[in-house]
Structure formats: structure tokens, C-alpha cells
Computed example of a mutant assay.
Amino acid sequence: MNNRIKISNTDLEVGRINFGGNVFGWTLDEQKSFEILDAFTAEGFNFIDTADTYPWWVNGKGELSETIIGKWMKSRGNRDDLVIATKVGSETKEHGYDISKAHILKSVDESLQRLQTDHIDLYYTHFDDKSTPIEETLSAYDEVIKAGKVRYIAASNLSPKRLEESFEIAEKKGLPKYVALQPHYSLVEREGYENDYLPLVEKYGLTVFPYWSLAAGFLTGKYRSETDLSKSVRGEGARKYLNEKGFTILKALDDISVKHNTKPATVALAWLLAQPHIGAPIVSATSQSQLETLFAAPKIALDQGDLDMLDKASK
């Protein structure tokens, strides 16, 4: 059993790796998804992240990921052992970004149906439509929480300004407050989170679950040249990191992974876990060997020299 942490201001305890469900229905079919989920939970991990629109790039509307997770939970009878996070508000071919009350009330019921459950543990504002009044969004969350459909709410891709206003309005109106933040954060993407969001994380006591923790696979060390990008359907996402800074970070990861007899990806995740307020990096895997790389991250104790080397390389 791996160590678990409690999400701030909740009674939810989660393992230190958050499995990203965007691969279900995309690079993993239903059977392979079941196998990966079985292996993930067999190791003692319990936290699964998805969205109502994953993977929208396959069919234009998503839904496949939630459906596969729902079928898996139903067949395994393990819903009570899991912490399930999903999201609302993302854009599809059918509609734009939308966090209106009407959309939230409709979407939560659709997600519950696909997930074959009566409650969502952590429900994210996935993207901000920038036009719905914050009070309207929080009022919708208040309604679904009181109905027992959602336990807690969290935020992803909100501007710092709208995030802070959400707390101010929630306090003033007695509405639910976000308990967690899901930002873009990794060794190659530090500035936006550390400058703009970390002060708010500290101010409001949020638990942080970074996405793109391995920078589209770049921090695994798999992509070291343009010719490497064709190794995976996700390879093009790593192109922008093929520069001096990226290579400097890979060199540091290589050196530290040799020292700890592990993989660069494991070290990159261990670095995230060593940062303040980080609960569990969101990361996906499509094979048992990739899962082993993730499982090792919470077990690696980076020393101050390791952390200093990575800090210097990634600044």
C-alpha cells in the first residue's frame, strides 16, 4: 500500500499518483484500459482523473473515458475504494466552453450515468467560459453537492483573477469553495504556475494535481531529436521542448536516474512530489512497464543535491 495524502478541506485520501484517463478510448481500447486500471489499483493506488470530454479528439465529443471507467468499476465492484475526479466546461464540436448552471446540471447527470455511480468525489471546472457569472457557477455546484451528486469541487484552467474571485464570492455568499487546483506544471513548465498560481494555492490552502506532468512524454527521455517524435501518436506534443533548456533538463534527469537506479520519468515525478502543496501528479500509462515507472516515483527520495541540480537545470 502506498502512502496517501488527504486533499485539503476534505475527507478524501488519495495515493500519490493520479491516473489520467484521457488515454481510455484513445490509445487504449476497453480491454487494455481494464488491464491498466486493474494493475494501477492492485498496487494500492486509488485516484483516477477523467473528464466528460475525454477523448474529444477521437470522436469530437468525448465520453469514452467516463464510459470505460464506469464499466470497469461496475464489473469490479470497487467504486467505494476509489476517488473519482471528472470535469465540466470543456469545448466540444457541439458546444463551446460552458460553465453555466444549465450546462453543469445537465452534464453532472450525464457523467454520473456514464460512470455508473451516484456521486463524483471531485468535480472540476475544466475550462472557464469567461462569461458566466462566478456566482451562477458556484450556485450550480452548491445544488449538486446538496443533492449528493458531487462531494467537492476543484478548478483547472481558470485565470488567477477568476480563481481568486471565486473564493471571494464563495466566502461572501456561503457557496462551495474549490479544494484543489489542476494546473499545467512540470520541470519544463514552471513559470506560469509558480508565479501566478502558487501564491493563491498558499493563500487558500489548495492541494495541487499537476497535469502534463511529463510534458507530453518529453521528460521520459523518449524524445531527444525530431526523428524521435514519430515514436508515438503523442510525440508532436514534445517538439517545443527540443531546445537547450530541454536537453539540459534531460541531462540532469539522466544523471539522477543513474544515481538512483531508476528512469528519468520517475525522477521527474519525484521532483514534482517534492514540491510544496503537490498532492499527486496526473500521469497516464499504456503498458505495465510504464506503470512501473510511475509506481516508483513516490518511493524515490531525492536529496537536496538532486533537487538543486533539477532546479538549476529547469530555471
Results as ranks from 00 to 15, higher is better:
M309A: 13
L198Q: 12
A268W: 00
H277S: 10
D255H: 11
A51P: 00
Y223P: 13
L28Q: 08
T27I: 14
K61D: 14
Y185G: 14
S100Y: 10
K71P: 01
G25V: 07
E13S: 12
Y241E: 05
E292Y: 07
A85I: 01
A313P: 03
I68P: 02
L310S: 15
V208Q: 07
I48E: 07
D128C: 02
G221N: 06
T220Y: 01
Y193S: 03
I249S: 07
Y193H: 02
S65V: 06
A170L: 00
A274C: 05
I104C: 02
L163F: 03
S159N: 09
D11P: 07
F45L: 13
G70P: 00
R239Y: 02
L291R: 05
Q275R: 04
I134E: 00
L291N: 06
S230W: 07
I120F: 10
G77H: 11
P298H: 08
K101F: 10
S232Y: 11
G89I: 06
P264W: 06
H95W: 09
I48P: 02
L214Y: 06
A140E: 07
D29P: 05
G70M: 01
R79S: 11
W56V: 14
D228C: 14
F40N: 11
S156I: 01
R190M: 00
F19M: 09
H119L: 05
T92M: 08
L112S: 05
P281H: 13
D303Q: 13
A238S: 08
F34Y: 13
I278T: 15
T53D: 14
T53V: 15
D80V: 04
L250A: 10
I5C: 11
G305H: 13
S166C: 00
L64F: 08
T137P: 04
L253K: 05
N2T: 14
T293M: 15
I153A: 02
V88S: 12
A42W: 04
V23E: 10
K222S: 12
T293H: 14
E30T: 13
M1V: 06
V58P: 06
L181V: 00
R114W: 10
S257N: 03
L294Q: 04
Y152N: 04
K299N: 12
R114C: 10
G96Y: 05
I145K: 03
I68M: 02
N3T: 15
F167E: 01
K161Y: 14
